[in-house]
Simulated assay, not measured.
Amino acid sequence: MSYSRVRRRLPVVTFIALIFLLSLFTLMYKLYSPILVSNANMKSTARLKDSFTAATLLSSNCTRMPVWTKGEYKFFDDRYSNISTIWSSKHKEMTPEALQWWLRIQQSKDTFSTSDLRNLVGKLLEIIPDVMPYATNVSNRCLQCAVVGNSGNLRDSRYGQLIDSHDYIMRMNTAKTVGFEKDVGSRTTHHFMYPESFVEVIGETKFVLIPFKPLDVSWLISALTTGTIVRTYMPVRKQINVSKKMIEVYNPAFMYYVHKTWNELHGRYPSTGMLVLLFAMHICDQVNVFGFGATSKGNWDHYYQPPVEPSLEKDSAFKLTGVHNAEFETDIVKQLEEIGKITVYRGSRV
Rank of each mutant, 00 (worst) to 15 (best):
K314P: 04
S222M: 07
E264M: 10
W262V: 06
M193A: 08
G267Y: 05
S197Q: 03
Q239D: 06
F290M: 00
V67D: 03
A326F: 12
G227T: 05
M193N: 06
N140R: 12
I16L: 15
G152R: 01
D183A: 03
E181D: 10
D50T: 13
S44V: 11
K182N: 14
L154I: 06
N251K: 05
R349I: 15
R5A: 13
T232R: 14
I163F: 08
H190L: 11
S271Q: 02
I19D: 02
Y168C: 00
T14L: 15
Q161E: 15
L58E: 13
K341W: 05
T69M: 11
A175D: 07
P133Q: 05
V230W: 10
K70E: 12
V258T: 11
E200R: 09
P310I: 03
G293A: 02
Y250H: 09
E181K: 05
L162W: 15
L27M: 13
H91Q: 09
N150F: 02
K206G: 04
I105N: 08
F328V: 06
C284F: 06
I163R: 07
R5S: 13
K90L: 13
G160P: 00
P66W: 08
T225W: 09
T189F: 03
N325T: 03
H282M: 02
S316C: 13
S243F: 08
L27K: 13
K49W: 06
A46K: 09
S222P: 07
V258N: 09
S113D: 06
G347M: 04
D301Y: 02
Q335T: 14
I342C: 04
K182D: 13
S23Y: 10
H166L: 00
Q100R: 15
W102L: 00
T330V: 01
D50A: 14
S271I: 00
I283N: 02
K176Y: 09
R237P: 01
K238L: 01
M42P: 01
I247Y: 03
M234A: 15
H91C: 04
K92L: 12
R7Q: 15
Q161K: 15
N325H: 11
M246P: 06
R346E: 10
M170K: 04
I19W: 03
S165I: 02
S2G: 12
G227L: 02
R104H: 10
D130V: 02
V67F: 04
I202K: 14
W68I: 02
D216H: 15
R155K: 14
K244Y: 09
M234N: 11
E309T: 07
S271H: 04
S89N: 08
N153W: 06
Q100V: 05
T56M: 12
R187K: 14
H91E: 09
L48Y: 13
S81Q: 14
H166P: 03
G71L: 02
L220G: 05
N263S: 10
I339R: 01
V13G: 07
G71N: 04
V131C: 10
H324S: 05
D130P: 06
I240A: 05
T14H: 13
S222G: 09
A54P: 00
L224E: 02
S108N: 10
E93I: 09
F279R: 11
